[in-house]
Computed example of a mutant assay.
Amino acid sequence: MALLRLNHLSFGYNPHRLIFEDISFAVHPGEVFCIIGPNGCGKTTLIDSILGINQPQQGTIEVGGIRLAQLKPREFAQHIAYVPQSHTKTFPYTVLDIVVMGRTYATRGFGSPDSSQRQRALESLDQVGLTGFSERLYTELSGGELQLVLIARALTQDASIMVLDEPTAHLDFRHELMVMEIITWLVKEKGLTIVMATHFLNQAFYLENAEVPTRVALMNQGKIEAIGTPSEVITKNTLKDVFKISSTTGTTDEEGIQRKFIVPLKNLR
């Protein structure tokens, strides 16, 4: 059974102008489902709908076979964790305080996190490579470190699905690779299901090269143009039609492993 299913979903801030229309797909356990497409095609708006922020004008969303609208906040948190594209650092909480917030849904009333919840947060920090960061002030972290903390917070939630909106948008090359390595580990070793919106098409190839079950949904002008593996969807022809660019694909054979990639060549507009 699909963990997440969208059935003929449509949404618009103005009822006479839809941002996306008639979106249907299913996300299966233990896969990465990448949503790609040009700026303004509706990726983030679609992610916000999956998170329950946007109420669809038409269609339904099901999580674990239950309609999203029927889930209470605590139940929703058990199914879906979220890593935002950006985050404003306002108060100098410790890193551990931020990560343990992933267990808020499991804390009753005005209670405080117990020792087991704090231990779970420490384990998540270890899993994203931030052992020893627990007492650091999160307002003093670099962008890459902060993104890893937010992934640790989502991991602490122990949800079955993790939704990431442009998780490497503001990161340098090294931290982008670290995030992709963690995503690979989460799927292969933890069996997590990932829904990820991204502008970086080679990230889908990275996952495919790493033998992570990966599918891509190509959005354009509020519609899904194609769904399939990265190799099936990210091609010279689709990039020409959707992104209006000329591109070429290639492979490397480093360390005895073949890896596929795509390179943009020129703008066709």
Rank of each mutant, 00 (worst) to 15 (best):
I257D: 10
A2Y: 06
G65L: 12
E189M: 14
Y13A: 01
K43M: 02
F33V: 13
A26V: 03
A152S: 02
E211M: 13
E135Q: 15
K240Q: 11
G222P: 09
V100M: 07
V83S: 05
F11S: 02
G222K: 09
Q58Y: 13
S246G: 12
A81Y: 03
I53E: 01
Y105K: 11
M162H: 06
W185E: 12
T60M: 09
V216L: 08
G129P: 00
I194N: 06
T249P: 00
T94A: 07
L218A: 03
R5A: 12
M178E: 13
T249L: 14
V242K: 09
G143H: 00
H8V: 10
S116A: 12
T251A: 13
D241E: 13
T44W: 10
V95M: 03
T131K: 14
M196K: 07
D253S: 14
I36Q: 01
K223F: 10
V83W: 01
E255H: 09
I194K: 07
K89T: 14
M219G: 06
R153E: 03
L71C: 02
M219E: 03
Y206M: 04
Y105P: 00
V263C: 10
I224Y: 05
R174L: 14
F33Y: 07
H170T: 01
T251K: 15
C34I: 04
Q58S: 12
G40N: 07
Q119A: 12
D172V: 07
N7K: 15
L268E: 07
Q203I: 04
S24D: 10
P29M: 12
S246I: 04
F20E: 08
A69Y: 08
H87W: 14
S10E: 00
V216R: 08
M1K: 14
T90D: 06
D253A: 12
F110G: 07
I19Y: 04
S115H: 14
G102C: 03
V99P: 05
S160K: 06
L3G: 00
T252D: 11
S49I: 03
E211Q: 14
H170G: 02
V32W: 10
G37C: 05
V195A: 05
R17W: 09
L122A: 12
L6K: 03
G102K: 04
N237E: 13
T45V: 08
I262S: 07
N267A: 13
L141P: 08
L122K: 10
N209C: 02
E181I: 11
A159R: 08
F91H: 08
G52I: 02
D114G: 10
Q85Y: 08
I36T: 02
L51V: 10
R103L: 12
V128P: 03
N220P: 00
S115M: 14
F33G: 04
H79G: 06
L68H: 01
T248I: 15
F91G: 06
E232A: 12
K244G: 00
E181P: 01
P230A: 02
N54V: 00
H199Q: 08
H87G: 08
A121T: 02
I257P: 03
R120Q: 15
G222Y: 08
H16K: 10
L239C: 07
I182F: 06
Q203S: 04
K89W: 03
P230L: 05
S116I: 11
M101S: 00
